[in-house]
């Protein structure tokens, strides 16, 4: 079955991972900008990162027939530095018309601080002014519940927002209902220890249905599994769910959400007549 991983940090993964994903049926990935594991010292550091996201990763994924899309921002953790954040936000419009850019993300909160909230609101304002979609990171562990509620407060306060163009990611059992009831898309992240397991993600599909629901691996530089979405597919099959339901969650839903972005240029694999891998694929 074809699937799309709507949240995966491929800059942290090897080319072998692209190959494995392709073999498992992955046909597209979307990669939000995130924290690299260390705080960057200047806006130029982000400029290079955005070039990597908008130029090199597309080429690398293309070696295996995977379409690569991306989202740009300064992440919630580094947003604590307001001055640097404002420099990065001012630079983002330079990249918004690059091929494959889907919008602003992953913005959000980390420790639910004042500075994080201020920079989150400034990102949202940029997205609204430039007509971009938004992908949102919600905090981890004990901070997730209050942080998610704060994020929803800020989003629902803004009457300019089209809620159907906003994805709130990393939902779990205590936050998914709030996100869906407020009219946003919800993303479930499959992570080995924190966040969600494939089994619990399937539980949430059973409890809330497939409407406006996505599932992703968020594979990154930490302990994570880039092939987690196929684990979710297998769990749905083990429980006797239909192939049409599976296809909806892992393929059609991402297509529906991403199709709202002007940067989403995607040819479904079943519409491709002949293989279109670039001839000199592996040239460095």
């Amino acid at each position: 079955m074809y699937y799309i991983d709507p949240h995966i940090h491929m800059v942290s993964r090897t080319t072998d991972d692209y190959e494995s994903l392709a073999k498992m049926g992955c046909v597209a990935v979307s990669e939000p900008a995130f924290w690299a594991g260390f705080d960057r010292g200047s806006a130029d550091g982000f400029r290079d990162y955005f070039r990597q996201l908008t130029e090199f990763e597309q080429r690398r994924s293309g070696w295996y027939g995977i379409s690569h899309f991306t989202w740009l921002c300064i992440n919630a953790k580094e947003a604590e530095n307001v001055r640097l954040s404002r420099e990065v936000i001012a630079m983002i419009p330079e990249f918004l018309d690059k091929p494959g850019v889907l919008g602003i993300g992953e913005i959000g909160l980390n420790k639910n601080t004042k500075n994080e909230a201020i920079i989150f609101l400034e990102h949202v304002d940029l997205a609204v002014r430039t007509g971009e979609q938004i992908l949102i990171h919600t905090p981890h562990l004990e901070d997730k519940y209050p942080g998610t509620r704060m994020i929803l407060d800020m989003l629902t306060d803004d009457s300019r927002l089209d809620r159907g163009r906003v994805l709130v990611d990393h939902v779990e059992e205590h936050t998914i209902r709030h996100v869906l009831e407020d009219g946003f898309w919800a993303g479930m992240t499959l992570y080995p220890v924190s966040k969600c397991t494939p089994e619990r993600a399937v539980d949430m599909v059973e409890m809330y249905g497939p409407e406006r629901l996505l599932v992703n691996s968020a594979g990154d530089w930490g302990p994570s599994k880039p092939s987690a979405v196929p684990d979710f597919i297998l769990e749905l099959r083990k429980r006797g769910h239909s192939e049409s339901l599976i296809r909806r969650v892992v393929y059609e839903n991402p297509l529906t959400f991403f199709s709202q972005s002007r940067g989403f240029n995607f040819t479904p694999p079943d519409a491709v007549v002949a293989t279109e891998f670039p001839p000199s694929s592996f040239a460095r």
């Binding site: 562990l141 004990e142 901070d143 997730k144 519940y145 209050p146 509620r149 704060m150 779990e172 059992e173 205590h174 619990r200 539980d203």
Partner: peptide, 13 residues
């Protein structure tokens, strides 16, 4: 599961 999540969460103000 939801109750456990809330048990391990900070409160929302």
């Amino acid at each position: 599961a939801e109750k456990l999540q809330l048990l391990f969460s900070l409160p929302y103000e």
